[in-house]
Amino acid sequence: MELVIQLIFAAITALIIGAAMMTVLVRNIIHAALWLIASFFGVAALYLLLEAEFIAVVQVLIYVGAVSILILFAIMLTRQITNQGAQQFVARWWVGAVVAVTLFTLVMAPALITATWVLPPQQGPAGAPAVLAGPAELGRGFVSEFLLQFEIAGLLLLVALIGAIVIAFEERARRRRVLTLAEEHALRSQESGVRSQNEPPQPLVAAERTERATAGQD
């Protein structure tokens, strides 16, 4: 039984870490987002193994069902089709690698030196299943002990909702204009002219380009 659990744990760990590595290393950003989803799934499986089934379900619902879809939409709304094979890493990417590896070593070194890595002694009578707090207790806690935090979380979500709409909102007049062929042609030549002068393009042009790239979204 212990061996089975250890094997499952090893498989889940491999999934989490491998998928996370692919997420940060892979060139194509859509592939990165898909690997991220795999990693989220691994984390949900780990929660299931830790017997936190409610958190596992919430992980799938929020991360896999919502956050990753949001990320995929954002990538598709901001993708530059012409610029796909561009460099994905910053020039000094090795600084990031050094920082990450150093942090991992600093955290793990004391643990490797001092920690015992033995299993805790079994509490209570042997074989008795531990009493686990489930969704029912969680729900009761939210309306009694953690009421204030719960309300604040709700407020945060409301603020985030409004904020996201305000930030990403585009005026309808700008967004919905369908360009005629002549306008499109003029826009394209103007763009290439702007590019050759190496200046940042004007905001209005930018808005119209977004519109053309994402027409028919809704």
């Binding site: 061996l3 940060v24 890493f89």
Partner: peptide, 30 residues
């Protein structure tokens, strides 16, 4: 689970995931 895998193993996974995320946040341009 608690009787088969020591907690340090789980925490190591979490630390590794955190560092990978940190690398991603520092080294990516997008």
């Amino acid at each position: 689970m608690t009787q088969a895998v020591p907690i340090e193993a789980v925490l190591t996974v979490a630390a590794a995931l955190f560092c990978i995320g940190l690398f991603g946040a520092l080294a990516r341009r997008n």
